[in-house]
Structure formats: C-alpha cells, structure tokens
Amino acid sequence: MKKLFLGVLTALALAAGGTFAGTLDDVKARGNLLCGVSTGAPGFATIDDSGKDVGFDVDYCRALAAAIFGDPMAVKFVGLTSAVRFTALAAGEVDILARNTTWTYSRDTDLKQTFLGVNYYDGQGFMVKKELGVKSTTELDGATVCIQVGTTTELNLADYFKENGMSYEPVPTADNAESQQQYLAGACDTYTTDASALHGTRVNLEKPDDHLVLPEIISKEPLGPLVRHGDDNWADIGRWVLNALVIAEEKGITKGNIDSWKDTKDAEIHRLLGTGDGDILAMVGLPKNAMYNAIKAGGNYGEIFENNLGATSGINIERGVNASWTKGGILYSPPFR
C-alpha cells in the first residue's frame, strides 16, 4: 500500500513537472504582477501619505512589472507577514516575494524556493533606548528582547547569546508594528531585527534621537527576492531584472539620462537597453526594451537605494557593502551577454 502511494505520488510529480512553468504567461494573461511585500517595513515597503506603495522592495517589483508590461504600475502588492510569506509564495498567491527575506540554505532547499540574488546585504542589529545607557550588545546580558516570530533573526539571537554566555528573555511578536509598540511600551529592553529595518523604524519614531541602533551586527542577512521552485525561466527574468539595475548603476545609466546612450560604443549597454541589433531578451520571453523600461521605472540600483534608504529618504543608511564593486562594495552583477 505504501509503495503504491509513493508510486502514485512520484507519477503525479513527474506528470506535473511543468505545471508551474508558465508563470510569465500567467502574469501576462492576468495583466499584472502579484508581488509579496512586507506589511510595513519603512524603507522597504510602506504606504505613503497618498496611499501609494513605496520602498526598496516595492521599486524592484515595479521594475519587474515595467520589464514585462512596459508599465511600472502594472503590479499588485500583497502585504505578507513574516509568518505567512513562504506559504503564500508556495501556494501561488504571489508571483514573486520581495519581502526583505534572508537567503539561507534551508529556505533555498527544504522550503523549495529559488533566490534570485541579493539586493541588500544586511545584518542583524539591536535598537535600545538611550536612557538605558547601553552602548554595546555585550552589555545586554539578562535583557528582554522583542523579536518577530518565524524569522532568521530569532535563530541568530539564540546563537549569539549562547556564544557569548549571556541570557535573555524573548518576547515574540507578529510583525514590525507590534514589536515597535511593545518596545515603546517598555515591555522589552531592546528590539532586534535586520539593521536596515531598525534604522527605518527609528526615523519614524516620535523622537528618533532617544533611540540608538547598537554598532554590532551579529549575523549575515543577505536579503533578496525569491520565487518558488519549478519555473527556471521566471526565476531568470527576476534575476536579470535585478542584475540589470545593478549593471545600470555600474555603467552610469540613470532614470534621467537613459535616453542619451544611443550612440555609445559600449556593446553591453546596447544589449541591455535593447538599442543594438540582436534581441537577447527574447530568450526569456521579454520584449527587446524590457530592461530599458525596468531602469526607466525607478532608476538604477543606486537611485532606488538613495530614494528609499539613503539620504533622500531621510533614513540615512550608508551604502557600505551595498555599493557597487567599482566603488568598494560587493555588489557585482554577472555580465549581460
């Protein structure tokens, strides 16, 4: 009986090999892209005063929508908590998940997801109230820590305190908003999550100067967009839209000057913007000017970063390791060839 069951299962798996293979067709037929984002992470995905979705992850999805449809607004954002995001992606409720999600081995393999690359190199940090007088994470022995459930930060926290022989009391919360409320009410001494999110949260507090993001980073958190296993073409599209934005910054192509590259001698720029003779984007089923539209949507990687996380946004996160490799960072795209 068990053999029969397994046999049927295998047969079904084999028969179903290509069922999810048409994500691009599904998206085109639907007329918009379904993009899973955070329910509220300042800088990454929030809703501004006019009711418009804004943020670093939001802009990536707009670029992807622009690449497919030529229209950056042809995207519907689905707010997902950290707890339901993978289920929502696996169940096909969203086409792509751009929800400051850390790329880890088990998520890549056991959860059957495909990470498209890293769009932000992050690390876990701690925020405390200045009046607490804490200057370093090593002084946090015995502290009560607010933490979002179902995140990698939860596991890092346990590892970090154990490594350093310190104790702590976790206060689990459902999302960023609840963590923030508990932290402000004093139900926890410190709030820990990705440092970028802490910076984003801090500037939105009533008195940002009363709070301090501690200097230590206790983990590697490479954040990136992801899709479910089973549709390599769709993964390629997402991956190369991200790469195109990085290459655009490297080459100096911005939202403003994108139309002035027609006479350049750089063949890669012609391939990227679709101004050359060949049409290599047909390989993945995108129009020739897809990457042109993607870059035109919100600018290159650097512009998106500045507008959502950098000085322009008020969050003031330094580029640091997230600078292009030509400027001392580790952002490095494979060649567009």
């Binding site: 707890a83 289920t87 088990s106 179902g150 206060v171 508990q182």
Partner: peptide, 23 residues
C-alpha cells in the same frame, strides 16, 4: 499569539512551522 504567549499554536504552529516550512 496575539499577546506573544508561546502556546502550542505559537511553537509548533508558529515558529516551528515557519522555520521548517512543514505547514
């Protein structure tokens, strides 16, 4: 889970479910 109390829904049905993906 509304108040962060770690009952069986919070551990097995919350964190474990999330970390292992075994919904």
């Amino acid at each position: 889970i509304a108040v962060g109390y770690m009952d069986v829904r919070g551990t097995l049905g919350g964190i474990t479910l999330n970390q292992t993906g075994r919904e």
